[in-house]
Amino acid sequence: MAEHSVVNEDLVTVGRLTAVYGVRGWVKVHSFTEPMENILQFSRWWLQDPGAKGQGKWQPLEIDAGKRHGKGLVVHIKGVDDRDVAAQYCQRDIAVAGSEMPQLDDGEYYWHQLQGLQVVSQFEGRECRFGEVVRLMETGANDVMVVRGGDDGRERLIPYLPGEFITDVDLDAGVITVIWDPEF
């Protein structure tokens, strides 16, 4: 791994190195991509600097092999053939350049684009500010936005169902408009 780290706002977190696998430099990967194997298609990975949690510092990471293993993925870090050395890379996030992310159709968004947006409800002619999207969850039936803060400081779980509860997503304004009862 290179000695330097970079600070780059254009990076998107796409997974995490979790644990060593075997004794020859392989590590397990928890992929946030769908399907999980898509993480292997990115040409350049960045690994979170271990001393810079939350500060956006990343180091380049070269992978020379990757494959599905059981229900997950494993990758080999280039130049690392020792379990103890590989362990130093674990429990760190993986990011890729936002420019490498596939283009989406109109009306489709990546989760990272929705996080941090303000959520406003237009319910029965009243406007209520619910706060910001702090994260999204996959529930099986549909994705759910976890929204916190706003006028009453509550946390709300709002199904991400465009056309039903989600009426507008305006990335430029940083606002998601929903139809959701403030009492719920």
Rank of each mutant, 00 (worst) to 15 (best):
A2N: 13
A2E: 13
S5T: 10
V6P: 14
V12A: 11
V20K: 14
G25K: 15
H30Y: 10
T33L: 15
M36K: 15
N38E: 15
Q41K: 15
R44H: 10
D49K: 11
D49M: 05
G54C: 11
Q59V: 13
P60R: 10
R68F: 00
K71S: 08
G72K: 03
L73N: 03
V74L: 00
I77D: 01
D81S: 15
D81F: 15
V85G: 01
Y89F: 14
I94H: 01
A95R: 01
A95V: 06
V96I: 11
A97Q: 11
S99G: 02
S99I: 11
M101F: 05
M101N: 04
L104T: 03
D105C: 02
D105P: 00
Q115A: 05
L117G: 03
L117C: 04
V120W: 13
V120Q: 14
S121H: 06
Q122I: 02
F123T: 03
R126E: 14
R126S: 12
E127A: 12
G131T: 09
L136P: 05
M137Y: 00
V147K: 10
G149E: 09
E155P: 02
R156G: 07
R156I: 10
I158F: 02
Y160H: 05
P162V: 11
G163E: 13
G163T: 13
E164G: 00
V169W: 08
D170C: 13
L171I: 14
D172S: 12
A173P: 01
G174C: 13
T177W: 06
D181Q: 09
P182E: 14
E183Y: 12
F184H: 12
